[in-house]
């Protein structure tokens, strides 16, 4: 019986994102909100673990009240419960502030065995929360998993490590971080949708957690986005003329200029 928690985030649907180039901010008006693509795979993993080893799946998100919809979608997929961490004091939190809140929430929960996260969110792409949370809670974070099993309080897995694979055995609790190639997600059974909208979502606010003095998303987030710029991929075309021999000479010169020479050109 594992207590499995999956961290999810509600993000704007990313197939048609538009940015206000004056402020550098995402235009969120009229955007459809969905669960962050990585996180759907996290929910799938949580449900798969529950089906195989038994347990309870709780989806957690931090965000405004409208983020309840993401939790209800997770419940429709098969999660047992949803927790919304919400308070005006948490607004504008960067990854560190988010982690501080999550740490307090998990310490309040206490009996967690597995925390699942995605790699990153599609609307900010920092990918920092899994690492920070591991540090804050003092529990191992395991990334790039491709085979795993649970045995009582042990977790064993195989993970990608460059061109090798590592075999790892650790004690629970752990954080598993997975990406969207890890599994294939299930389709939502429509019979769960009614229940998903009837079930009560637990709310956790500023007053429900400890050490609020450190927590102030708006004023104490160390990360500040100063500017957003369009990334332009520039490629320059150069034409080389002359006889074959001249062309080779010119190519060698170009490679030399780019510092490729010392790797192999010199080995005659």
């Amino acid at each position: 019986m594992l207590n499995i928690y999956v961290l999810i985030k509600q993000v704007p649907k990313s197939d048609n994102l538009q940015i206000n180039w004056k402020t550098g901010a995402l235009i969120r008006k009229n955007l459809e909100n969905v669960i962050n693509p990585d996180d759907i795979h996290g929910i799938e993993l949580a449900l798969t673990i529950k089906e195989k080893y038994g347990g309870k799946v709780t989806a957690i998100t931090m965000g405004p009240l409208q983020a309840e919809a993401a939790l209800r979608e997770a419940i429709a997929m098969g999660a047992d419960k949803g927790i919304l961490i919400t308070d005006p004091m948490f607004a504008y939190s960067d990854t560190l502030q988010t982690t501080l809140v999550l740490k307090e929430v998990f310490e309040k929960i206490g009996d967690y065995n597995v925390i699942i996260t995605g790699i990153e969110t599609s609307d900010s792409s920092t990918g920092q929360v899994p690492y920070q949370l591991s540090e804050a809670l003092g529990i191992p974070l395991i990334t790039d998993i491709f085979n795993y099993e649970f045995e009582k309080t042990l977790f064993r897995c195989q993970r990608n490590f460059g061109h090798e694979s590592q075999f790892i055995e650790v004690n629970l609790p752990i954080i598993m971080r997975i990406g969207r190639h890890f599994n294939t997600t299930r389709h939502i059974p429509l019979s769960r949708i009614k229940r998903a909208f009837e079930i009560e979502i637990e709310h956790i606010d500023f007053n429900a957690i400890n050490c609020p003095s450190e927590i102030d998303g708006c004023n104490k987030s160390p990360t500040q986005v100063i500017k957003t710029e369009k990334l332009i991929h520039k490629r320059k075309n150069e034409f080389i003329n002359g006889t074959i021999k001249e062309k080779i000479q010119q190519i060698l010169q170009i490679m030399k200029d780019h510092g490729v020479e010392k790797h192999w050109i010199g080995k005659k």
Binding site: A76, I193, A196
Partner: peptide
Amino acid sequence: KHKLVRRS
């Protein structure tokens, strides 16, 4: 709820 039905 209706949006979720549509998306699903």
